[in-house]
């Protein structure tokens, strides 16, 4: 018997986890769809939808304006809902191990630590993130398609197209699907951030015995705050009265290094999760 990895055993584990958890994913997705849809509706029907934004346009009527300034609420809603959905579901997968009533059965199930870890990766991270993306895409596509149909008689003048380019970067004015707004680099970085967030909360769910979600969230906030404060302090101390002469961003593709950094960080978190899973007591 292979004690590290068996395809048959892994398949049985995935099947078991799906049978026991599909209702959680379905209900969460339904709630996510409902919340995002509600925010779309509230923003679209609000009076602000047709207001001028003097920062970006002048001399244009509100009806023409809304075609390129509307739907900016999407970034905020998708970010907030993404953080909530991904952290909650990622933190849910291994939280069962902390309670004796469920933990004993999970830890004594005849599967290897590697298989349990991969199960967590698939259900805690991959399925969670891709479910979130799917729900957002479906919701956004449905609403934008509906808006396009409703406002199909609106015409675009050159000024509107020009301002759309400023906002969206291509020649098409009007309502855009959100996947058209993001370029490949942005999508990659956002996806990696989602994995990073998922990895942190997955590790937190197995590391902390009691209230893992709250403790992990507190830890993340504390870490980001202290890193930001430290950076500010060091910048002021070391770079006071200095002028930047060699901007790193101007050379090569710094986002590649940033992506590699994120991948390394995610890998480290999963390695920590493996060892924590191996040493888990209940």
């Amino acid at each position: 018997m292979n004690n590290t990895f068996s395809t048959r055993r892994f398949g049985l584990l995935l099947r078991k986890q799906w049978i026991e958890n599909w209702k959680v994913y379905l209900a969460s997705s339904a709630i996510l769809f409902g919340c995002i849809s509600l925010f779309y509706i509230l923003n679209i029907v609000s009076d602000n939808f047709f207001q001028r934004d003097s920062h970006h346009i002048t001399g244009m009527d509100a009806y023409t304006y809304f075609r390129f300034s509307s739907l900016r609420f999407r970034e905020g809603i998708l970010a907030l809902s993404g953080i909530g959905y991904i952290t909650l579901l990622s933190g849910h997968y291994y939280s069962r191990l902390s309670k004796p009533a469920t933990g004993i059965q999970e830890l004594t199930l005849p599967v290897s630590v590697t298989e349990k870890l991969l199960g967590g990766l698939i259900f805690g991270s991959l399925l969670t993130i891709f479910t979130f993306i799917a729900v957002c895409l479906v919701t956004d596509t449905a609403f934008v398609a509906a808006l396009r149909v409703i406002y199909s008689d609106v015409t675009f003048d050159n000024k509107a197209v020009e301002l759309s380019q400023v906002n969206y970067g291509d020649g098409e004015a009007g309502f855009k699907y959100y996947y058209q707004v993001l370029d490949v680099k942005s999508r990659t970085i956002l996806l990696l951030f989602a994995f990073l967030l998922s990895s942190v909360f997955t590790l937190g769910s197995i590391y902390f015995r009691r209230f893992p979600f709250i403790k992990t969230a507190f830890f993340v906030v504390a870490l980001i705050s202290s890193l930001t404060a430290t950076q500010e302090f060091l910048n002021k101390m070391l770079l006071k009265d200095r002028v930047e002469i060699n901007h790193f961003a101007a050379n090569g593709h710094p986002e590649v290094f940033f992506i590699m950094f994120l991948i390394t960080l995610i890998g480290s978190l999963w390695a920590a999760t493996y060892f924590r899973l191996k040493e888990k007591e209940v």
Partner: peptide, 17 residues
């Protein structure tokens, strides 16, 4: 906690779901 060992042990705990 190898699978080979765990397949030969079964635990009926006091608290369970």
């Amino acid at each position: 906690r190898t699978p080979e060992f765990l397949s030969q042990v079964f635990v009926i705990p006091e608290e369970f779901t």
